[in-house]
Structures are given as structure tokens and as C-alpha cells.
Design a protein around this nucleic acid. Structure first.
Length: 427
RNA sequence: GCGGGCGUCGCCAAGUGGUUAAGGCAGCGGCUUGUGGCGCCGCUAUUCGGGGGUUCGAAUCCCCUCGCUCGCCCCA
């Protein structure tokens, strides 16, 4: 035993441990998602956590906050600029291009895992966080927008979340957006003095965001501003209405939000967010949309695509609030109480044998008095205890004891008979 | 990056300048070296996130720092 004279180390800020008691909920979410994707013919892809910085700069956009000030970037030993992925789409698209997957037709992919963004942590926002995302590449039909949204909606519903809101908007084509942006900037510049300071600073950095201002006076003023919807070309308009019709046909409720703007540059046409009112400031559980230009922008063939990503921390937060999932790990089938030199050695061997036979077995390694071991056996939640003491070891038998209910009759059994005895007793 | 709140044992928590830092839960040990779920007894913070300062004296006051948290921003 050494006394603790050194200071204990802590995890980095915004980096969170997931402890055994919470992991059940995560595994539940993952299992439900996997099943949904299996049914939908969406296949898993795993890409590296680390990518060349340029991938994100080019894919997400130099000017975005994510790229501009939130990335974990560093030079590796070969002086290459590397970045811990802040999102999944760019990596998936890179992998798809790199391996020529699109030459084999449309790709239906999902991914999951940690993402990294250097932000100030708060509720529902960490520096390492986890996403599950879907990317449908190679299909431009508005039905694919609808299918992608349905996939997200149904997954959340399968998890028991029914009071979420789907917000929908169309950003049009890149050209639609560029001309609207120019028009909006002109208008904002003309009204610059009347805007709140926050919005003023955004006029040139992120003008579309001004539309989302929380300042009441700015909002009132904005009533007279040009609308993104009016700037959409005829084709974009038609596309958007087909997406809306598709959602209506599926009975998926949505709310049009003309101010919904995605923060990553690659989005076009359909943009959506699924939000909750129970998450505080970070209300978005799932966000996504169409990104028809990205594949080409990253050096691949012109390819239409839609996708979304879902924030697992926020999702788990919601599930925990509703106590939807129990999440406690299952108890062992059998708890092995053992004491005495020969008995302890034999108990270890038997434990291994029973595990190979398919039982979940917990072996008491304390060497403590039988009374203590029985207390632990009870607390383990096991239905049965196998008792192995000196006399059992000598005779080559174990005592099988029922832990639940009244003191049942203990049975002395050969070790080989234990698995089937439990099998019979456990329906 | 900017604001507000908070930080006493693994968890919950009393204590707000006076010297042994309550209590509960959990854990460990004993009553009981071989039979449990109960009970009883005992142990578990030389120390109050960390560092510095003020003071005869600090968990309690001041400064710095780290972390958590809520909001802004941003996003999932």
C-alpha cells in the first residue's frame, strides 16, 4: 500500500467518461439503430478519427465556425496538418471517393463514433461527443430526402421519443443561395444601425444566421427583409414541394422554418433539424440535409447526396429523462462461493468450464468467510450460488443453492450437472 | 471566445473565522474460519478541487488557477 502523494490526473476538459452504470442506455441506442439500418439496407462504414486538415477545410468550409475555431488540429511527426474529425460526412465522402464505391452504384451508409470540437462545454455539448449518421450517396430524387428523414424520425420513435419537432427548410441550389445571400447582405447593410450588435458582426461573416437572431427588435425589423424562399429558382421550388408532399404522405409531421440554416457550407436544398424542448440551449438532436455539391468538391464525380447526424449525448439525455430504458447490466446466472486452498483452485477451474458451457458465472475471489460471500452472492442478483468448500472439493461435488425465495433444498451435484440444473430451473 | 452560478470522503450532505470536519448511503472488518438477504459493533477526509496570501488561528476572508454547470455563440 502506498499513500497517495502524487496528484491524481483528470480527463481533459470536455472529455467525458462513460461509466458502466450508464453504458446500458448507449448500447440500447446502438442496438436499436443497428436494427433499423439493417432493415433499411444501410451498411456500416468506419473511417479514421484523424484526417488531413484540408479535408474539413474544403468540405465543411473555411469560413464556418467549426473549421475556423473549433477544430483539434496539429502537426504530426511528418509535419502534416492533421485534424480530429469534427463531423462524419466529410470522412465518409472521402472514403467513398478514395475506394471508388460510387462506380458500384448508389451507396447507403451509416457511421457512428466520437467527434471532436473545441468548444466551451455545456449541457448537451462536449469536446468529444458521439454521433450516429446516415449518408445516402448517388440519389438525387426528392424521395431520397424523404427516406433519409423517415429513417431518422423512425429511429427516434423506435427509441420511444415522441415529442420531437421536425423543422424543415430548403436552401435551394448554391446559386439560389449565393444570389439570396447577396440580396440579403445588401438589405442588412442598408439597415445596419438598427441591428443588434451580434447581428451586425454577422452581416459579413454569416448573414443567413442573422435571420435567426434572438433579439426582438432585430426580429421585428427582419419582417421586411428578403425571404430565402422567394429567391429559390423554379426547380428548387418544385423539389421542395415534392419533399413536403412525401413527408405528408408518410404521416411525418413537420414545421416549415424559413430561418433554418445549416452551419456547414456543403448543404443545399433540403435542410432539416429534429429538436426537443427538453434539452436546454442545445435543442437539436438530429440535423441534416442534402449536399449535392460535396462529393465533387472533394474530388469525386458529381454525385447527389443526403444525410444526417444524430447527437448521442443529447439523445441519451432525453432517454434518461424519460426513464425509458432500465440499462442495468444483467446479473450472473451463477455465483461461486468458495473457500479453502483446494476448493479455491477447483472453483476457478469450474468457473471457467461453466463459462465455456455458456453460463454467466461470477467467481468470488475474496477468500472471505462464507457469510460474507453469501452476502455478495445476494447482491450480485444471481439466482443460484454454487458452494465449493473443502468437503465438496474432496468429494468432487458442488452444492447448488437457490438464492431467491425461502431457503430451498440445497442439492449436491456433480459439476457437469450444474448447467442443465440451471437450464431446467430457469425458464 | 464572453458572461452568471458552483466545487467538503466513491455518492448525498452539515458546517460561513476558533481549533477532534456532523450525519446518511455505499465499501471494508467483526459478532458468525461452512451458509446469505435482517440486526448490532467498529473502520474508512491530519483535511475541505489545487496553489498562494491575510490572521494568533481559515473549509469558512482575499487573489490566482483547475474543473463542473447554466446562458451567449455554435452545432448534433
Amino acid at each position: 500500500m502506498t499513500s497517495t502523494i502524487v496528484e491524481a490526473l483528470q480527463s481533459l476538459r470536455g472529455m467525458v467518461d462513460l461509466l458502466p452504470e450508464q453504458i446500458g442506455l448507449w448500447q440500447h441506442v446502438e442496438a436499436v439503430a443497428r436494427e433499423q439500418f439493417r432493415r433499411a439496407g444501410v451498411q456500416e462504414i468506419r473511417t479514421p478519427l484523424l484526417e488531413v486538415t484540408e479535408l474539413f477545410a474544403r468540405g465543411i468550409g473555411e469560413a464556418t465556425d467549426v473549421v475556423g475555431k473549433e477544430m483539434y488540429s496539429f502537426l504530426d511527426r511528418g509535419e502534416r496538418s492533421c485534424t480530429l474529425r469534427p463531423e462524419g460526412t466529410a470522412s465518409v465522402v472521402r472514403a467513398v471517393i478514395q475506394h471508388g464505391l460510387l462506380s458500384q452504384g448508389a451507396q447507403r451508409l451509416w457511421y457512428g463514433g466520437p467527434m471532436f470540437r473545441y468548444e466551451r462545454p455545456q449541457k448537451g455539448r462536449q469536446r468529444q461527443f458521439h454521433q450516429i449518421g446516415v449518408e445516402l450517396l448517388g440519389v438525387g430524387d426528392p424521395r431520397s430526402d424523404v427516406e433519409a428523414i423517415a429513417l431518422a424520425w423512425d429511429l427516434l420513435e423506435a427509441l420511444g421519443l415522441d415529442d420531437l419537432t421536425l423543422e424543415l427548410n430548403s436552401l435551394g441550389t448554391a446559386e439560389d443561395r449565393a444570389s439570396y445571400r447577396a440580396e440579403l447582405v445588401r438589405w442588412l447593410e442598408a439597415h445596419l444601425e438598427d441591428l443588434d450588435p451580434d447581428s451586425q458582426s454577422r452581416v459579413h461573416t454569416n448573414p443567413l444566421r442573422v435571420l435567426d437572431s434572438k433579439d426582438a427588435a432585430t426580429q421585428a425589423l427582419l419582417a421586411g427583409a428578403p425571404q430565402l424562399g422567394d429567391a429559390l429558382g423554379g426547380e428548387s421550388h418544385q423539389r421542395f414541394s415534392r419533399v413536403r408532399q412525401g413527408l405528408e404522405a408518410l404521416g411525418i409531421p413537420f414545421r416549415l422554418n424559413p430561418r433554418l440554416v445549416r452551419g456547414l457550407d456543403y448543404y443545399s436544398h433540403t435542410a432539416f433539424e429534429i429538436t426537443s424542448t427538453h434539452l436546454g440551449a442545445q435543442a437539436t438532436v438530429c440535423g441534416g440535409g442534402r449536399y449535392d455539391g460535396l462529393v465533387q468538391q472533394l474530388g469525386g464525380p458529381a454525385t447527389p447526396a443526403v444525410g444526417w447526424a444524430l447527437g448521442l449525448e443529447r439523445l441519451v439525455l432525453l432517454l434518461a429523462q424519460r426513464q425509458t430504458a432500465p440499462a442495468t447490466p444483467p446479473p450472473p446466472d451463477l455465483y461461486v462461493v468458495n473457500r479453502g486452498e483446494a476448493a479455491e483452485a477447483w472453483a476457478l477451474a469450474l468457473t471457467r468450464r461453466w463459462r465455456l458451457a455458456g453460463l454467466a458465472v461470477e467467481l468470488d475471489l475474496s477468500g472471505a468467510a462464507f457469510g460474507k460471500q453469501f452476502k455478495r452472492a445476494d447482491r450480485s442478483g444471481a439466482l443460484w450460488a454454487a458452494v465449493i468448500g473443502e468437503s465438496e472439493a474432496a468429494e468432487g461435488v458442488v452444492v447448488l443453492k437457490e438464492l431467491r425465495g425461502e431457503a430451498g433444498d440445497d442439492r449436491r451435484l456433480a459439476p457437469e450437472a450444474v448447467a442443465s440444473a440451471l437450464g431446467l430451473a430457469t425458464p
